[in-house]
Design a protein around this nucleic acid. Sequence first.
DNA 1: AATGAATGAGTATTCATTCAT
DNA 2: GATGAATGAATACTCATTCAT
Lengths: 239, 239, 239, 239
Amino acid sequence: MTDPARHASVGIEANRGPSAAGGDTGVTEAVQKTVRKRDSAGTRARILNVATREFANRGYEGARTDDIADRARINKRMIYHYFSSKELLYLAVLEAAYERARSAEQKLDLDTLEPIEALTRFTEFTFDSFVRDRTFINLLATENRQRAKVLKKSARVNMMNSPVIDAIARIITRGHAEGTIRDGLDARQLWVTIIGICYFFFSNVYTLSVIFDADMESPEHIAERRAHVVEFVVRGVKA
Amino acid sequence: MTDPARHASVGIEANRGPSAAGGDTGVTEAVQKTVRKRDSAGTRARILNVATREFANRGYEGARTDDIADRARINKRMIYHYFSSKELLYLAVLEAAYERARSAEQKLDLDTLEPIEALTRFTEFTFDSFVRDRTFINLLATENRQRAKVLKKSARVNMMNSPVIDAIARIITRGHAEGTIRDGLDARQLWVTIIGICYFFFSNVYTLSVIFDADMESPEHIAERRAHVVEFVVRGVKA
Amino acid sequence: MTDPARHASVGIEANRGPSAAGGDTGVTEAVQKTVRKRDSAGTRARILNVATREFANRGYEGARTDDIADRARINKRMIYHYFSSKELLYLAVLEAAYERARSAEQKLDLDTLEPIEALTRFTEFTFDSFVRDRTFINLLATENRQRAKVLKKSARVNMMNSPVIDAIARIITRGHAEGTIRDGLDARQLWVTIIGICYFFFSNVYTLSVIFDADMESPEHIAERRAHVVEFVVRGVKA
Amino acid sequence: MTDPARHASVGIEANRGPSAAGGDTGVTEAVQKTVRKRDSAGTRARILNVATREFANRGYEGARTDDIADRARINKRMIYHYFSSKELLYLAVLEAAYERARSAEQKLDLDTLEPIEALTRFTEFTFDSFVRDRTFINLLATENRQRAKVLKKSARVNMMNSPVIDAIARIITRGHAEGTIRDGLDARQLWVTIIGICYFFFSNVYTLSVIFDADMESPEHIAERRAHVVEFVVRGVKA
DNA sequence: AATGAATGAGTATTCATTCAT
DNA sequence: GATGAATGAATACTCATTCAT
């Protein structure tokens, strides 16, 4: 609560969040080592980062509060101090993940692009975001398994996704006006479709690798998939 | 081991497997009540049915062997008698699910339809199968969370999906020859795309319901989604 | 109950009992394979052989009735048919082991040897019997851990050891008469001492190997130990 | 972690360890009652004491973690908190037992006695230590039944026994020089022999009692045995 | 703010034994 | 005589959470 420089770094850390498919999030935990003791925001952020990784990799039930405490190098009691319970920690993780996804989407600036190009860009962006980091996919898989039991309790996530859907709606309207985008397209449906085409390959990459007896995570398979997806979406929306 | 009538009923039960999105499978457990005692195949099938439901609804870690035993109305020890361990029981469940999916696909008779019609039919079939039963989706979510750790051990699942992919390849060839299907389509990619477009909506129906603040499982939403998906796929493949 | 040839082989099998320090007893189980079915004595003997091995290698608590049944290639129910319970099976194993030990000792013919030579012979015999087979040592370790709870119930083992002690008493008397054996030796004490000097090395060969960081079961270590033991006993009894 | 008085008492408790042949160790568990709660070293020591008793009396497989927890009046979870697993707890018990045995031997001061007297003293000490407490014998029996599987993992026990063997070596040298001890004695062999002569009577006291139909633990039998053993060892080593 | 000891309900798995054929 | 299915009590170990400092 005293050193502003430290606060700054914490802020960045909190923003970045976990990345990398399933490995280490590469977050700045180690950097904190020297300072510590009575670093409220830092401790909270460190817990949240580690918890994100653990919940994503092991699911809600599989994640262990003990492990989270150990890996965040904090006392287990602190989890309860900052988040009250495992479930509320998990909810904070979910909300942060949605928040990260939304803020990333908003940097896309789709309105400045031609309609087809804008949708291409959005598709590629979605696909590439899953290449970089499957944390969000994993969290959603866990949350849907428990029928959004926890997410339902969130007051913050509701409607968070609308900005990008609004953007897609504007693209459709523009494209329709200029005759490049076909009739009968609903923004929400299109959003679900684009996300879904990208999503399934990554959410199921391990079982697909088994049934196709190949490493679907290899750069070649990913590149092939990416090209197919983009082409398919463009065909699907063209007038 | 002597009464063929009993065997027949068991066979049917074993074939049917669990259905219904997330609730009770309504399988013939109750019917067995009268027979029971020393009904080896029946006991095994009952365990497998209940286990399918439990693993699908609660995930691998969340499923309890105690609950499975109770709900199958067998002694817990029997699980180990027939399946050796929770993991091998789960593997048996996975294999049976793949087997059911494959044998359902094979009844489609896609080769007798016009190419576009055949792909429409396959898309509708895939979509509708998820409407009826999300067991398989849930099992796949669980299995991908653990990086197909268990499925990898299966000697049976490998390449099980090829028949339908071969059928899609034949459709593409036919459509290409007659000029109704576009160039550059790979059967496997198309299979992943069609499954994926259908899949995502159902695998994430609970979180989508929260963020859209609507019951996406309602008949209206499902019908709307179905129409969009079919139209999108047709557009995506047309010449 | 019909083929006398088969019976003969069974008798031999029952006599031989298990051998080899900790490995397979090398008994004739495989030979039985062809005949079988309704071979009462053979089944009983096979159970007893396998049980001896299992109890010796794993202790009373560690031995599994399932394993015994599997390895004897009989139905588990047969154990109860022939022996009533795990405990009574174990008692039968113990009694058979004592019986084997006793009948082996009786072949020594110590009365025909010079006193010192006779005790040397008995010491070597005892030592060598442990080299060949530690089954008896292991059974005794298990039984003493449970304070002879089971052996106490035996009506047969009581005083079984006296023949050899009588023999030792006669040796002492003879040696005393001719002046080769010292005064003050009690046959029973001497018996315990000779057995004990041989026994400890073998009963504790694994922990001794750890604390001496050497394989005490190697031929060299055994030979060195044997020489020391024999020399020590001779010195200990000489006039 | 602040009160040195508590620490001191814990230290003493940890030193004493369990005693008494097979009954209760009578350790200071009751004394702790008043202090308790958040007494880390005390809890650990109490677990170790009770575990020593249980493993000695029931063997590794026979000992129950539940019982150990109950009798140490701690929560079962604490066993895992302090020792990680039943096996590592058992290893800690073994190491502590070896440590106690070694430190007891070192108080013998054999170098100040005449050679024969020193060996007499060592023999009596060994014999008497078994009269007082058969814990170590029981632990060794258990550990040898599992072929020192656990002890092998110890980094501490290796060569722990050398001090006393060195002392015996010095005795032999001295006795040889002054002509009281015979030729050809190896210190390690002699150590095994002396321990062994004492050990067998106690390790097998229950089965010996059955076959001799007498209570070999009675003072008379023990005294008779002690005299025989000492005499035998002296005869065995004399020049 | 931070720590580490302590807890009770639970979790997969095992085991000797009995039942029905 | 022989079989394999079925059982209930238990066994080592785990987990989210709270207490005392």
